[in-house]
Amino acid sequence: MTEDRRTTAEPDLTAEVLDAVLTSGPVPLTPPRSQLSEVWSQFIHHKGAVAGGVVFLLIVFAVFLGPQIWTLDATYIDIRARNQGPSLAHPFGTDQLGRDMLSRMMIGGQTSVLVGIVAMSLGLVLGTLIGVLAGFYRRLDGLLMRLTDLFLALPLLPLLLVMVMLFRDRLSAAFGPETGIFILMVTAIGITSWMPTARIVRGDVLALKEREFVLAARSIGTSNLMLIARHILPNVVSPIVVSATLGIANAIITESALSFLGLGFPPDFPTWGRLLFDAVDYMQQNPERVIMPGLAISLTVLSVNYLGDGLRDALDPRIRGR
């Protein structure tokens, strides 16, 4: 929108113009558009965001629709074809039991992408909620931050062992073994990864709520809820976005570490992290076996990162139009 807004950011402005702008504020030349469509139009013009989005969608399509096209069973053992390199029959080669790696990558991707996104979202929502509440309401700060300290100190492994012991059978009975474990894993990763986000968001909110614009909003009688939604949250988007991208990678890798320790998915259930872990010992013989899952995880994380960058830029009114 406003051409003059963009130019105000340029450092070569004269002091007079700057003063004029600061005192009078920008004059809207076009009628205001809704914030959402504004953000969307910025977002789809962001090259990084578009590229990230396309790659991410490709990955999602590949892992969820791919098995419809490439129909080899990911758990079928063809023992005569073990440890093969890439070929026409097996474009990604086979593993130590002769299972097709392409199918395993696709099936594994379904779990990994889902675990990554759901666990990250859970951690993010929890972290943001607790961070904003603690930063904004002084009464809650002490309690919520001590809770954060407690969760930071809890050792993850025993916690998971307890969760598995208490809930695995019940969840398996209610949702079937695989969905049950999925819920368990996602919850476990989510509730043990929200603390950094909470602390970071709280730190920013503490500073933000003393800013002039919050004071201004408060002085015209904006309710607390409105204040948080309209003024605080949009301003803590950047650390949240960074937490989100780091969170996805973290969730995928944590899942693999947990399967390795016998706390994750059943053994015949591939995930990217698990495929990568299993392949590490074969790094010298079959390098493609580590490259494929490693690349898949990195690409997912990178694409989400660029998506996040686009979102951040689109939400920042000062750099719109770039």
Partner: peptide, 15 residues
């Protein structure tokens, strides 16, 4: 940095 973060140490270390 994103590649660095998404590659777990059990892989990068052995590499």
């Amino acid at each position: 940095s994103m590649i660095g973060f998404s590659v777990p140490p059990f892989f990068s270390g052995v590499l």
